[in-house]
Amino acid sequence: MYAIGERINGMFKSVAAAIKEKNPEPIQDLAREQLKAGAQALDVNVGPAAEDALAAMEWLVKTIREVTEAPLVIDTTKPEVMRRGLEAAGSGSVINSSKGQQEQLDIFVPMAVEHEASLIALTIDENGIPRDANGRGEIALRAVAAAMEKGLPMDRLMIDAVILPVNVTQPTPGHVLEAIRNVKLLSDPPPKTVLGLSNVSQGTRQRELINRTYLVMALAVGLDAAIVDVLDTELMDEMITAELLMNRAVYADDFLKAYRASAAP
């Protein structure tokens, strides 16, 4: 699984403070720690509180780039902030994200092509989040069509079927699993699938347990990537074990160590 570390996000107080004070150390520590824990890419989100989102994004990306060349997942809804982030991060980055209405795809798909980036497309459109798997599939198909039309290869399109907290809407986890399976039938080669995992447990009391159980379920139906707390060792252990059971890695008695040693930058 392509593990995207979620911790460099202005929603966390320490990150917000570092952005405000332009203090690189906490950010660079988080980048290093997440990569060491098995992240293959790092999500970068300036958070809602940043006064000048453009400048904050540029500073964050450049600060991270001082310590790693790992792919960065630029996490913003604003096209101009996205563009600034992509320019600072270089090719191989990920746009996180475009919604599924045509106007948004018309902006972000060409941006992904131009910057040699991947694109996360959410199955949300002007009508909101679909109630079921079919609705998610319809929006995903729109993203697939846009990618084909504009020349974005399928292995750089990542469909996020949008998980909601289980204590808000209990049928959704099932719908999302069905959608992940269906997305793989939309084209050949199919697009990739991704989830912002931690959302499934928002507001619950057993956040880690719900996160890691759902991650394993999603991997079993073909999930390719997830934005996760890679510093949660148990979550990563479950992910590594699920990959092994799916025959995506060769068994060895110390398979957890092997995965981590292979992932170490």
Partner: peptide, 14 residues
Amino acid sequence: DINIQKQVNILVSE
């Protein structure tokens, strides 16, 4: 045995 091969490689690298 590919599994033991991988394990030996892990052990010596450790």
